[in-house]
Nucleic acid binder design. Structure first.
Length: 271
DNA sequence: ACGCCCTCCTGTTGGC
DNA sequence: TGCCAACAGGAGGGCG
């Protein structure tokens, strides 16, 4: 599923095809996404030039002349760069047609994705303004993680997936970061020591950067803007490896449930 | 402030 | 083979 590395991969794939292009039309085929796409959105963006792309957490941003488009890929979404005449397939929900003959086409079987437009500073948008610091920015460091973990009883894995505390980390990278930091996912956040917090902050950054480098993780649906899958699946230590030998110590990987989500860890490597 | 539970939707898988 | 429940990568909103 699209977590930070998949969204960043999509942004990088899309960027050279869209910056400087003009939007000929936004065609919404299915407005019923996570939030209904407003009927007047096509009128608002038509004719505008795309000035830059950006990302905030798992939101992909397209900076236009008079505003910003905010796209979330949800659980099963992908945004592809295609020739405008490419036939649509099931679950293609909108097309952003550009003056180059290319279209940005959004496909999302589960419709948990979303598309918003704002003419204000996008960082002040209700969906973005409460998000935690970017994990690849300086502000996300051991000191920050130490501070937010001190009084929290919640399991550290669930804390990693709370976007007001840490952004960009979903179910896959939470398990992977905890493995790399050698910390058990069920540990209460406040019980982590200084050195564990430092290892975890580093592990989050490392795992996200490595995943970006290989185009993200494709388990089922995800493809980048060019239609290619990501290759980080081959580098997963624990995710979806229940019963298989730990790549470090060969102990069988365990699977547990936390908040209705699967978590994977090595009972020997992680304390 | 925090923690928990529910919800949105479709597709796939596994058990009986 | 068919049916059905459980589950799948997110996260906002509401409640106590």
């Amino acid at each position: 599923m699209p977590e930070l590395p998949e969204v960043e991969t999509t942004r990088r794939g899309v960027d050279p095809h869209v910056v400087g292009r003009r939007i000929l039309a936004l065609s919404v085929h299915e407005p019923r996404l996570r939030w209904r796409v407003p009927d007047n959105l096509p009128d608002l963006v038509q004719g505008q030039r795309i000035l830059h792309t950006g990302r905030r957490g798992k939101y992909l941003l397209l900076g236009l002349e008079s505003g910003t488009l905010l796209l979330h890929l949800g659980m099963s979404g992908s945004l592809r760069v295609l020739a405008a005449e490419t036939p649509r397939v099931l679950h293609d929900h909108f097309d952003l047609l550009l003056d180059s003959g290319v279209t940005l086409r959004f496909n999302d079987p589960r419709r948990f994705g979303s598309l918003h437009y704002t003419t204000e500073n996008p960082q002040e948008h209700p969906l973005l303004k409460r998000l935690a610091p970017e994990p690849l920015d300086e502000a996300f460091n051991a000191e920050y993680l130490w501070r937010i973990t001190r009084k929290r009883k919640v399991a550290i894995k669930q804390l990693l997936m709370n976007s007001t505390l840490v952004v960009g980390v979903g179910n896959i990278y939470a398990s992977e970061a905890l493995f790399r930091a050698r910390i058990r996912p069920r540990r209460q956040a406040r019980t982590l020591t200084r050195s564990e917090v430092a290892r975890l902050a580093r592990a989050v950054r490392t795992v996200l950067k490595l995943a970006i480098r290989v185009g993200g993780t494709t388990l089922r649906d995800y493809v980048g803007a060019d239609g290619n899958p990501g290759y980080f699946k081959q580098k997963l230590y624990v995710y979806e490896r229940a019963g298989e030998p730990c790549r470090v110590c060969a102990t069988p990987v365990k699977q547990i449930a936390q908040g209705q989500r699967s978590t994977y860890y090595c009972p020997r490597c992680q304390k």
